[in-house]
Amino acid sequence: MVRIEHKRALLVVRIGDKKFEWPIETRYWRNPLLGIVCLALLPIVFSGQPDLISLFATANIYACIAIPLGWQMTGIGRLNFGPQFFVGIGGYTAALISVHFGWGPWETLPVAVCAGLVFGVMFSPLTTIAKGLYFSLVTLILPLIFLEVTYYFRVFQGETGLYGITPLVMVDNIKTEYLITGFLSLLMLIIFLFVVHKVLTSRIGLFAAAINDDEEVANNLGLNIKRWKILCFVATSVMISVTGWFAAHYFGTFAGVTYLQLPFMLKILLMVMIGGRGDIYGAIYGAYFVVILEKLLTVFGTVHYILFPLILMILLFTLPEGLYGIYRRHRYREYYPTIRVRKR
C-alpha cells in the first residue's frame, strides 16, 4: 500500500513497510525540481532555433565543469587553477579514439573515465605535498603545457583540432537531433548535480569542509587527510573528464586552443566566483550568466573580447561574494567556505 503524506516541507511516502522522506526545498530559486523543470522547458521553447539550444547545451557543459569544482575547492583545501586540463584529457581521449577507431560515444565513455582516473591519480600527489600556493601555480601551468604537447605531437592536430567525432545520436531530423542532445546535456547536468549534492551532504562533505577550514586540526581529530584529498581530487577529475568527453561528442570537434588556454580557465573561475564560491547551485546560475553575457556582447563586434573581461571585473568588484553573497546576508549560518590560496 502506497501512502503519501505531506507535512510542512517534507514529503513522506510509505510503501508497505518502508518509509521514504523527501524534503521539499522551500527556497524556490534553490529548489532543484523547479530549476530542472524550468531548464527542461528551455529547449522545448526554443526548439526552432538550434543556435539557442546549442547555447543551452554549452551552458550545461560549463556548469558540469563548475559543479565538481565546487567539491574540489573545499575537499583539497586549495584552489585549482587548471580544471580545464582534465577537460582536455577527457575530450582528447574521446576525440582520438573516435576519429581513429570510429568508436561511438558510449564506447569512448569508459575510456575517457579511465584516462581521467589515470591522470587524476598521477597528479594527486600534488595535493598532499605541494604547499597551497604551489598547487595553484602548478595546476595553472598544466593546461598550458598540455597545449604545447598537442602542438608538438601531430596526432593531436594542433591548432585545428580533431574533427569528425561521432555525434551522440544520429537521427535523420536535424532539429530532433539538437533537441535530443540538448536534453542529454541537461541529463548530464542533473546526474552531476545529484552526485555532488549527495556527496556534499554526507560525511564526505563534512570532511571536505573540515579539510578546508583547518587541515592540521582535522588530522589530529582522526581524519586521514591524504586519503580524502586524493579521493576528492581523483573523483572530481574523473567527473571533469566526463564533461570533456561530452563536449567532444557534442560539438563534433575538439581543439586544445579552445579549452586549454587562459580565457577558458578564466570563464570557469568566474562562473565559480559569480555563482558563489563552491556553491553547486550557484555554479549553474554562473554558467548561464557567463554564456548569455558572452553571446550578448558579440553584438558589439570585435570589441566584445575586451568588454567581456571588463564587465566581469566590474562584477567582481561590486559583488565580491558572487550572487550567493546576496543570499548569504540573510542566511548566515550555512556553511560558506573561506577559500585559502596561500597558506603561510
Binding site: A209, A210, D213, D214, E216, V217, A218, R333, Y335, Y336, P337, T338
Partner: peptide, 8 residues
C-alpha cells in the same frame, strides 16, 4: 582554540 571557523 582552533575550531573550524566556518562550521556550526
Amino acid at each position: 582554540p582552533r575550531p573550524f571557523p566556518d562550521m556550526t
